[in-house]
Design a protein around this nucleic acid. Sequence first.
DNA 1: ACCTGAACACCGTTCAAGT
DNA 2: ACCTGAACACCGTTCAAGT
Lengths: 242, 242
Amino acid sequence: MAAEMPTPPGHRPRKAAPARQPLSRDLIVATAVRVLDAEGLEAVSMRRVAQELGTGPASLYAHVSGKEELRELMLDHVAGEVRLPEAGAADWQELLKELAREIRRVYTSHGDIAKVSMGLIPTGPNLLAIAEAQLALMLDGGVPPKIAGLAVDTLGMFLDADAVEDTIYTAKRSPGEDPWESFRVHFEEIRQYFRALPVDRYPRITGMVDELTGGSGDDRFEFGLDILIRGIASYVPASGTA
Amino acid sequence: MAAEMPTPPGHRPRKAAPARQPLSRDLIVATAVRVLDAEGLEAVSMRRVAQELGTGPASLYAHVSGKEELRELMLDHVAGEVRLPEAGAADWQELLKELAREIRRVYTSHGDIAKVSMGLIPTGPNLLAIAEAQLALMLDGGVPPKIAGLAVDTLGMFLDADAVEDTIYTAKRSPGEDPWESFRVHFEEIRQYFRALPVDRYPRITGMVDELTGGSGDDRFEFGLDILIRGIASYVPASGTA
DNA sequence: ACCTGAACACCGTTCAAGT
DNA sequence: ACCTGAACACCGTTCAAGT
């Protein structure tokens, strides 16, 4: 309409509060994690994060190469919450288990984030620090380097899979429902379904519904963790006295 | 435009070849798996599958409740390719390993399908048949029922995580490239990155780049599988003679 | 009962234009 | 250098209408 005018002296144009804080990688990642915590990984879209920051989706591309990179940055951001063990504080096997439990705690407290980790070579500083700590514990415990290398991978796979498994129990809640109650109902449905299966085709499954559905997530985690750590420890060469 | 007319006798309306075959659940699922094999799980959208069938996305909803159900049906469809072991053909531990390798073979031959399995309670007939076979091997081998129940879960987690991990190595190919060569290049980049990390912060990682990146996917799989099966076997009570 | 077109409310990413 | 609006080429799902 009107031709362009110079801004009058003393007037700063500041058109209707653009973004409260200037955009930055960190701010974008922190905002994305907030959305993740509140509504899960599915809800974290470029558009949603931009909206939360009071801007449009195109603005994010100046700080982040795309959605994939944003997801990886979110994962590493969250990995920064993991408290690493002080070496020598206890038996290496117990410390490695403690670290695994700590990772589980952090992952499961951030929705679906473990899905991002699944099949990703860790490159962020915090993820690398965790791998470094795991390697330190194993190498100091006498695990051969090659085994320790494989074990970091296998342990990571286990932790990712467990965290993803965990979220299906907690995340199936529709918002506004009692999450415990809807979980119990959903679980009871599964048990009924298993019991209703044809016995001749699935004799073991129908015969052990309680064993198959009884174990809590913690039981499953501790069972797998124990097996893994014992397996790793079995590669430690017998010490001097043998 | 023109008012409605009755169809003249002898004239079948058959307007321009609607769908070559009549729509059905099976046809939809088989088509979806074809898209999965050719272009990966991401490419399997309701619209894409409908297009492949010469119809619109809304037509699928008469046979399938939505995308989530379609994905689960795809997984079970694929699980039908797994050849189950004949009990008694060999040592239960070796048979269980063979079954795991067979599942791995089938999963990795169907793109990203393992992502669907991740954190899903198996309910389809083929998935249940696999669980039944695993339980049969373990129970016949003397594994206590409660342990066998946990082990089915843990084994499933391992297989899912491994298959997802595998696809990142094979699926990062841009179409039209030599997949082997682009894989080698990508992998060499990772090694360079690890070597370039600050040695004081990551002494173990930088000191064992070869051990961390050397192992092939098969090494990792066999390592994890061996540990798991040995761990499960350790719960078999000592037999009579002890 | 099955199928359809059109619409609704979303996506990720690009790009020319602005400051 | 950073930010933006608008556009492009997609999504899943619903619903009234058709046969």
